[in-house]
C-alpha cells in the first residue's frame, strides 16, 4: 500500500509540473498586449505616452524572456506571491483569499447536497421502482442532467424570487455576518449548482442499486427476513456506493466549472466570476493563479480518490 501511495504521489508531482507549464503558456497565448488593455481600462480618456507604457512593462516584469518569466512565476508562488492584478492593482493572493471562501462555501454545500440527495433519490427510485416516487423523481433527474444551468437560474429567480417572493434574488452574505440571510441567499444558487450533481448521482445510484438488489446476497438477506431498511442500508447501499464516490470526486471539477455560471447569475463575488472577468479583461496574472489553484485542488482530490480506491480494492494497487 505504501509503495502504491508513494507512486501515486510521485505521479501527482509530475502532473503538477505539467499543470503549471500548461497554465503559464496557454494563458500567455492570450491575444493582445495586456498593458494596452490596462491603459484602455484605466486611462481611457487620457493619452498615455509610450515611455510610461514601457515603465509599466518593466514594473510587471513583462520585458523579460518568457522562460525567465515562467521560472520567476514559479519561484514567486513558492513564496506565496501570485503577482499583482493589472486591473485591480491588488495582490492576486489577496484577491483569492477574498473570493475562494465564497466559492468553497457554495461549492462545498452543493457537493454535499449533490451527494446526499443524489444517493437518496437514487435509493428511493431504485427501491420504489415503477411506483410514484420513481415516476416523479426519475423524470426530474432527466431535467437535471439536461437543463442549461444559467437558464435554470433565471427561471428560479423569476419563480421563487419575483413571483412568490420567497427568496432573496441574488447576492452573497457571509454566514458569520448574518447567518439567516446568508442561508436564504444560498438556497437558489446551491440548488442551481447541485441540481446536475443530484441528478447525475441519482441516476448512477439508481442503476447500481438496481443491479445490487437483484444479486444473490441481497436476496439472501431478504429471505433471512431482515427488515427492508437494514437490507437497503447494510447490504445494497454499501456496495453501490463505489461508483458514486467516483462521481463525487469528479463533482469537484464540475462545481468549479458551474461556479462560473452560477456566480454570474446570482451576483456572487466568488472566484468563478473573478476568473471570467479576468479572462475577458485579459488580466492574465489573475487567470493563471486561479486556474492553477483550481487545478491543484482537483489534482489533490483525485489523488485522494485514487488512494482510497487502492485501499478499497487491493487489485488496483497493482494496476
Amino acid at each position: 500500500m505504501t509503495t502504491y501511495i508513494i507512486r501515486r504521489i510521485l505521479q501527482a508531482v509530475v502532473v503538477l509540473i505539467i499543470v503549471t507549464l500548461m497554465v503559464f503558456f496557454v494563458i500567455r497565448l492570450l491575444p493582445g498586449d495586456p498593458l494596452i488593455i490596462y491603459v484602455a481600462q484605466t486611462a481611457q480618456l487620457q493619452a498615455m505616452p509610450p515611455e510610461m507604457i514601457e515603465e509599466l512593462r518593466i514594473q510587471y516584469g513583462l520585458d523579460k524572456p518568457i522562460m525567465v518569466q515562467y521560472v520567476n512565476w514559479i519561484a514567486n508562488m513558492f513564496r506565496g506571491d501570485f503577482g499583482e492584478s493589472v486591473y485591480y492593482h491588488e495582490d492576486v493572493s489577496a484577491l483569492m483569499i477574498e473570493r475562494f471562501p465564497v466559492t468553497l462555501h457554495i461549492g462545498g454545500l452543493s457537493l454535499i447536497i449533490g451527494a446526499v440527495f443524489g444517493i437518496l433519490v437514487g435509493i428511493i427510485t431504485a427501491v420504489r421502482r415503477g411506483k410514484w416516487p420513481d415516476k416523479i423523481l426519475t423524470p426530474l433527474t432527466y431535467v437535471g442532467i439536461t437543463i442549461p444551468v444559467f437558464f435554470l437560474g433565471i427561471l428560479m429567480i423569476y419563480v421563487f424570487g419575483v413571483k412568490f417572493g420567497w427568496l432573496p434574488i441574488s447576492g452573497y452574505t457571509s454566514p458569520f455576518e448574518n447567518f439567516g440571510l446568508s442561508t436564504r441567499q444560498l438556497i437558489m444558487p446551491v440548488i442551481c449548482m447541485s441540481f446536475f450533481s443530484i441528478a447525475a448521482n441519482a441516476r448512477q445510484m439508481r442503476s447500481s442499486m438496481l443491479e445490487v438488489i437483484s444479486q444473490d446476497y441481497v436476496r439472501t438477506a431478504w429471505s433471512k427476513g431482515l427488515t427492508e431498511r437494514s437490507v437497503i442500508l447494510k447490504h445494497a447501499m454499501k456496495n453501490s456506493l463505489i461508483p458514486v464516490i467516483t462521481l463525487v470526486g469528479v463533482g469537484v471539477g464540475i462545481l468549479f466549472g458551474g461556479s462560473v455560471l452560477v456566480e454570474t447569475i446570482f451576483a456572487i463575488p466568488g472566484v468563478g466570476r473573478l476568473l471570467v472577468s479576468s479572462i475577458f479583461g485579459q488580466d492574465y496574472v489573475v487567470v493563471q493563479a486561479i486556474t492553477l489553484v483550481i487545478a491543484v485542488a482537483i489534482l489533490v482530490v483525485n489523488l485522494l480518490v485514487d488512494i482510497s480506491y487502492g485501499w478499497l480494492d487491493p487489485r488496483i494497487r497493482y494496476g
Partner: peptide, 13 residues
C-alpha cells in the same frame, strides 16, 4: 472580440 482584445484594438493597436 472579448473586451480585452476589443479595447486593445480600438484604443491601442
Amino acid at each position: 472580440a472579448d473586451l480585452g482584445r476589443y479595447f486593445g484594438s480600438v484604443f491601442g493597436t
